[in-house]
């Protein structure tokens, strides 16, 4: 037992019950179905923009890319153009692999002790888990657009067909939803089971994990077990995005949907305040988005105070005769 994950778990369970009790017993459907989702989206957009603007204000006078390969040097030394880029196209290539394939995480190593020596082993599973998690999340989000668009674009139908490739049962099993839940559970178990990782894990690390487990869990429960009236839910979702919000009448929108929606709202509202902002942060990382050209261009700190320096040139001008007399070497003869 550990206060960090227990408090995060309890927080998510309490939030889920709040939405369930609020809509099933207290009739607060408009609160959980309309006001909170709208508020959450506003929070998300405004919060994310403010955060990025705040980061954008930080000056980055010097080049501080992490270099993971040979930098540009003499012609006969081969440069690693992606891991140590010296030009903008190189940086774009590096960012492409970083953002879409998590290249730096791919290099993850694990320290250990073998035969009394410190060893570093390549550890690929965090990368695999992270990639599976992010891409299944993206696919689920894209597929969910069927609730928010009318008519539904054909592309979403294609994604659905591919995702339901195995045609298991009805409604057909969608792989991405299952992979999403599996991947978050893997990422959680990593934090819980590896002592070193557990030691540095805080509530802020567990909370989004439990939140996403709650979201994926309720979603899977709705689709494969409870079965909910999807047409009624799409009516609610469409009313939200067409800015004519209304809880559908004469049909039941299940309480579980409100739990699902409320946890999503919490995730969105929490997003700008949390480590989840790495979604925007990865683009603004000076260790990734700068070309390593410090040896080709001089980068001057723009807020250097305007000090009066006595340069060596001026010093030599002052003392040239005396220096020559004393037999000291000078740069410019008299």
């Amino acid at each position: 037992m550990n206060v960090q994950y227990m408090s995060a778990l309890i927080a998510v369970v309490v939030l889920g019950f709040l939405a369930y009790i609020g809509t099933e017993f207290l009739g607060l459907n408009s609160l959980f179905g309309i006001f909170i989702p709208y508020l959450a989206v506003c929070f998300f957009l405004v919060g994310a923009i403010l955060k990025v603007m705040k980061w954008a204000k930080s000056p980055v006078p010097f080049r501080i890319p992490t270099t993971c390969g040979q930098q540009k040097s003499l012609d006969w030394i081969e440069q690693n153009k992606i891991d140590n880029p010296s030009t903008t196209p190189g940086v774009i290539a590096r960012m492409f692999f970083e953002v879409l394939l998590f290249r730096s995480l791919f290099r993850n190593t694990k320290a250990g002790i073998k035969e009394g020596k410190i060893t570093y082993e390549w550890e690929i599973f965090l990368w695999v888990g992270a990639l599976a998690f992010h891409y299944s999340f993206l696919t689920v989000l894209v597929r969910h657009m069927r609730f928010f668009l009318e008519p539904v674009p054909g592309l979403i139908g294609i994604v659905e067909t591919l995702d339901g490739f195995f045609q298991v049962g009805t409604p057909g099993v969608l792989l991405s939803g299952v992979v999403l839940l599996g991947a978050v559970l893997f990422l959680l178990s990593r934090r819980l089971l590896i002592p070193q990782v557990r030691y540095i894990s805080l509530m802020a690390d567990y909370f989004p994990l439990f939140l996403i487990i709650g979201i994926a869990g309720t979603g899977i429960y709705m689709r494969y077990f409870a079965r909910v009236d999807v047409v009624a839910i799409k009516q609610l979702a469409m009313s939200l995005v067409t800015l004519h919000p209304a809880i559908p009448q004469n049909v039941t929108v299940s309480g579980i949907l409100y739990v699902h929606l409320f946890l999503v709202s919490v995730l969105f509202a929490y997003f700008p305040l949390s480590k989840l902002m790495h979604m925007g942060g990865v683009f603004l990382s000076p260790t990734r988005n700068l070309a390593n050209n410090s040896r080709m261009e001089r980068h001057i700190n723009p807020w250097n105070p305007d000090l009066k320096f006595h340069t060596y040139e001026a010093y030599e001008n002052d003392f040239r005769e005396k220096m020559i007399e004393a037999g000291l070497p000078v740069e410019k003869e008299a």
């Binding site: 989206v41 657009m145 668009l149 469409m238 995005v241 067409t242």
Partner: peptide, 21 residues
């Protein structure tokens, strides 16, 4: 670009109400 993507359902539907079938 971020805001355009995040709000895409709103402007793709252009605020029209659409009845359920």
């Amino acid at each position: 670009i971020f805001v355009l993507i995040a709000t895409s359902p709103v402007w793709l539907n252009r605020g029209k109400t659409k009845e359920a079938p």
